[in-house]
Amino acid sequence: MLLSIGQELVQRRNYLPEGTQVETIYFGGGTPSILAASEIEYLLDLISIHFPLALKEVTLEANPDDLSLEKLAAYKKIGIDRLSIGIQSFQEPILRFYNRAHTASDSLRVLDLARSAGFSKLSIDLMYGFPADNHTYWQKDLEMALTLDPGHISSYCLTIERKTALGQWKTSGKFKEATEDFVADEFNLLLDAMTGAGYIQYEISNFGKPGHFALHNTNYWRGVPYLGIGPSAHSFDGQHRGSNVANNARYMKGITSSTPVFQVDILSPEDRANEYLLTALRTIWGVDLPFFRSTFGWDLLIDKEHEIRFLKDNGWLIHADDSLTLSRSGKILADSISAKLFI
């Protein structure tokens, strides 16, 4: 697989718009922390050979149980400067329910190890919305996360996919997900805790202290082109999106035989405008109205006048300084608000 990924890097070296300098590299999607530092270094070397670099951040997703001090030191030496650690929860009953391989003590240990290895840019992932009688689990998770103070916290709501074990349990009645009100309460607890600790919600699911925003995340949500390599990877060249085949065997066979593994999604002008609305509204920077008008040709203040007035009157949308941003109450309704503004 590693050799196939290396081959794809070479094959798609001209994918990004001409003159694009690569500012961020992100090893994620799956468990890249099972790779040895030498394997990741091989990919970094290929990238440096075939792409113009102006690197500001190199991130590695990691599971707490994959990391030792020796391995962390090796990652740091080859240029990894941000770790994104999939903790999910510090509560043992929840970790067991999610069938996670690591324990709460592993999570506490790995942050100490990462700092000992010289990592100053750390991100941790937490998940809220676990159905329970009250919010005690979530409050304890927030308290522990802020005690550890990694500088960046990503927090996502538990979602149930139909083909997963949880999806099957839900269908059979073995598992009942939390109510919308319960999830909304946990989201508000999250906002209160982050704000109180000096974290800025720069994107609905991402919180960082000043100077600690994850640059790769920021670029993604602000529509910067990116190239994704490997099975299931997605890419965006500024005009079109696309994705690689998900099946590992088909992916490797395609790369070896130079059979296309990347399928392009043709975006209409409306698609591009709506994607911008969907992503920009999730951020602290919001929708840049002059940019939207000059880039896509629609004037939202005219074309969506009634919808904007309705959303503002309900306290969900803020219009200020030539931008549209979500209010605190609007953030939990982000997707439906975006849909109301779609072209």
Score class of each variant (00 low, 15 high):
residue 198 G to L: 00
residue 256 T to M: 12
residue 171 T to F: 08
residue 251 Y to P: 02
residue 262 F to H: 14
residue 34 I to R: 06
residue 312 K to W: 03
residue 306 H to M: 02
residue 222 R to A: 02
residue 76 K to P: 01
residue 51 F to N: 10
residue 170 K to S: 07
residue 27 F to I: 03
residue 159 T to V: 10
residue 324 L to Q: 08
residue 71 K to D: 09
residue 2 L to C: 00
residue 160 I to V: 15
residue 320 A to N: 11
residue 214 A to M: 08
residue 329 S to A: 08
residue 294 S to P: 03
residue 310 F to I: 13
residue 296 F to Q: 02
residue 265 D to C: 07
residue 334 A to Y: 00
residue 39 E to A: 08
residue 178 A to V: 14
residue 48 S to P: 03
residue 222 R to M: 01
residue 54 A to T: 04
residue 68 S to G: 07
residue 311 L to S: 01
residue 164 T to A: 07
residue 281 L to C: 06
residue 318 I to S: 10
residue 182 F to C: 04
residue 89 S to Y: 05
residue 284 I to C: 06
residue 307 E to R: 10
residue 65 D to C: 15
residue 34 I to K: 00
residue 138 W to Y: 12
residue 123 S to C: 03
residue 239 Q to V: 02
residue 146 L to M: 04
residue 259 T to Y: 08
residue 229 I to E: 01
residue 191 L to F: 06
residue 152 H to M: 01
residue 301 L to Q: 08
residue 259 T to F: 08
residue 288 D to M: 10
residue 271 D to S: 11
residue 54 A to F: 04
residue 145 A to I: 03
residue 101 A to R: 09
residue 305 E to D: 04
residue 121 K to C: 08
residue 330 G to M: 14
residue 119 F to D: 08
residue 337 I to K: 08
residue 337 I to C: 02
residue 27 F to S: 00
residue 176 K to H: 14
residue 104 A to F: 00
residue 253 K to A: 13
residue 36 A to E: 12
residue 253 K to D: 09
residue 231 P to L: 00
residue 225 P to C: 06
residue 209 K to F: 01
residue 317 L to G: 12
residue 257 S to E: 11
residue 319 H to P: 10
residue 270 E to Q: 15
residue 255 I to V: 13
residue 214 A to I: 08
residue 265 D to A: 12
residue 161 E to R: 06
residue 195 T to H: 11
residue 133 D to R: 05
residue 163 K to Y: 07
residue 67 L to K: 04
residue 304 K to R: 12
residue 232 S to R: 07
residue 107 S to R: 09
residue 57 E to K: 09
residue 283 T to S: 11
residue 82 R to P: 00
residue 139 Q to L: 14
residue 145 A to N: 03
residue 45 D to L: 15
residue 57 E to M: 05
residue 239 Q to M: 11
residue 77 K to T: 06
residue 218 T to D: 08
residue 139 Q to I: 08
residue 305 E to T: 11
residue 3 L to N: 09
residue 34 I to Y: 15
residue 5 I to P: 00
residue 127 M to K: 05
